[in-house]
Write a protein that binds this DNA or RNA. Structure first.
Length: 496
RNA sequence: GGCGACAUAGCCAAGUGGUAAGGCAGAGCUCUGCAAAAGCUCCAUCGUCGGUUCGACUCCGACUGUCGCCUCCA
């Protein structure tokens, strides 16, 4: 049993074996922060986050590099439009992106290198290409000569002559061939610039990834990732820039591309303007529900985002959460620890064996996260009868499985549900508390107030004063707090 | 025009040459003062038409439809 992944380079599912012992080196094309990041960006980051987690679980030492292309035409234009520097634009949008990924529970990469901080390596590669006769200088920059590299087009399956037929490529008097692309752009008035052998200027798009992957991972490395829309021209060009300097070697062993996200039936993209801003979506939905939604869809397929699908995912996740909580209670597990949970998965107890086997089979088969989720849901009914140690084992295994998928509940969150209340709801709660108990002192925690009111309601229920108990329940519901009566007493949670 | 992907129940969505995972919604039941939650049970023959095969939803071909890349894009 071992991990198999679809490799865009060979167009086949292949067994994944690291190039260098136990080390797995991954380079992921991050973001060009020139506008608000959207849900589509999150989708690919989310997939690679799960891949990383699974590789971790399998015992590999993963190095994950995700770049920031912090200089390009759009950033410069945006800066001019907003009257700020290019750097301000990068900080603004990259900051928003990083904050959103944190909320989504995407683990930070080991390295987040920026193009502008790697100009020396970029220059080194361009010079190497010049020496090979593959790059040439013209009046406005340095270009890559597509015809000088016979393998050009192999990764994306294009033929130079087919590309030429495309009506959308503009011929330029600065290039020898319309398909040639810029490695270095000479400075135009008002543009930011870095020193180079060709005078002040800036890197073209594509070259930064060749430079930074080489710098941090070495060549060749194991996995190069990105959205499917990057395969051409971006990744094709990366290969073309890198491999001529490797004496017959290749750049990346596996190329893994994630499918694109659609909204209202067409691709979510900056230029079409039909995207769902990530920040906004995260305000509207539980980040873990978004993760669950994407887990249900094969990572390579295009996915259509709808409001209904996110609602469905939210419900499904709740069931996992509740079962986990039940198992923890029945097993007497006070705290669910991530490392302990992963150990529980590596050597599964009888209660969890079938689930762990199904989970691993699914993930091994080209990261079928949908199958992994099905493995969890299919196993839930069998856990109902577990008590004591088996329940504890099941709880740990479930927590570990949810951790790999990135949907494990955050402990501090479940410990303090009242933190989910917004300020308006807290005000309502204070009002209610004042009426039922008395004015709340300043330091009174919302959670304590809820507890006391719920206790009042339980007293009423025990006294069979259902009118009062129902009115208290309604009042709490008005503040976003839902009370549910179970065999062990009443529980409450916050809904948004 | 070139290259490519996809078409599975009300919705989202896996999957296999031998008679279809899962989630949501829906129906019934259990529990319950009520409600909610939860649990149990039920709910598709896989775009159309041909072909290969003992047998295809799964392979091949044609067709129809949707979408992507070819320009910045996760």
């Amino acid at each position: 049993m071992s991990l198999r992944l679809y490799n865009s380079r060979t167009r086949a599912v292949e067994t994944f074996t690291p190039l260098d012992g136990n080390r797995v080196r991954i380079y992921m094309c991050g973001l060009t922060p020139s506008a608000d990041p959207h849900l589509g960006h999150a989708r690919s980051m989310l997939f690679f986050d799960v891949l990383r987690r699974y590789l971790d679980f399998l015992g590999y030492a993963v190095t994950y590099v995700q770049n920031v292309t912090d200089i390009d035409d759009k950033i410069i234009k945006r800066a001019a439009d907003e009257g700020v520097t290019w750097h301000d634009i990068v900080e603004k949008y990259y900051g928003s992106f990083a904050a959103s990924l944190d909320k989504l529970g995407v683990r930070r990469p080991e390295v987040e290198p920026r193009a502008t901080e790697h100009v020396p390596k970029i220059i080194e590669i361009i010079r190497g290409l010049e020496r090979k006769g593959i790059a040439y200088e013209s009046d406005d920059g340095v270009y890559y000569s597509v015809r000088a590299w016979p393998a050009y087009g192999q990764l994306s399956g294009r033929h130079i002559d087919d590309l030429l037929e495309s009506v959308r490529i503009d011929a330029s008097e600065h290039k020898r061939d319309p398909l040639d692309f810029a490695l270095w752009k000479k400075q135009k008035p008002g543009e930011p610039a870095w020193e180079s052998p060709w005078g002040p200027g800036r890197p073209g798009w594509h070259i930064e990834c060749s430079a930074m992957s080489w710098e941090y991972l070495g060549e060749p490395f194991d996995i190069h990732g990105g959205g499917l829309d990057l395969i051409f021209p971006h990744h094709e060009n990366e290969v073309a820039q890198t491999e001529p300097l490797l004496d017959g070697g290749f750049m990346a062993n596996f190329w893994v591309h994630t499918g694109l996200l659609f909204f209202d039936g067409s691709k979510m993209s900056k230029s079409l303007g039909n995207f769902v801003p990530l920040e906004e979506e995260l305000r509207r939905h539980d980040p873990r529900a978004l993760r669950t939604l994407f887990l249900q869809i094969d990572y390579r397929k295009q996915a259509n985002f709808t409001v209904d699908s996110i609602a469905a995912a939210t419900k499904g996740l709740q069931r996992l959460d509740e079962t986990l909580a039940d198992l923890a209670v029945r097993g007497g597990v006070a705290h669910l620890d991530e490392l302990e949970a992963l150990d529980a998965l590596r050597a599964p107890a009888p209660a969890a064996e079938s689930m762990v086997r199904a989970l691993r089979e699914a993930l091994d088969a080209d990261m079928s996260t949908a199958g992994a989720l099905a493995a969890l849901f299919g196993w839930l009914p069998g856990t109902r009868a577990l008590e004591g140690e088996p329940a504890a084992q099941a709880a740990r295994a479930l927590y570990g499985a949810m951790w790999i998928l990135g949907v494990a509940p955050r402990v501090e969150r479940t410990a303090r549900p009242a933190d989910l209340l917004n300020s308006g709801q807290v005000e309502q709660l204070r009002g209610l508390y004042a009426v039922e108990v008395g004015p709340a002192p300043n330091g009174k925690q919302p959670g304590e107030m809820v507890e006391e009111i719920v206790e009042l309601r339980d007293k009423a229920r025990r006294a069979r004063d259902f009118a009062r108990s129902d009115s208290l329940r309604d009042a709490l519901a008005g503040a976003g707090i839902v009370v549910k009566d179970g065999k062990e007493g009443s529980t409450w949670s916050v809904v948004r």
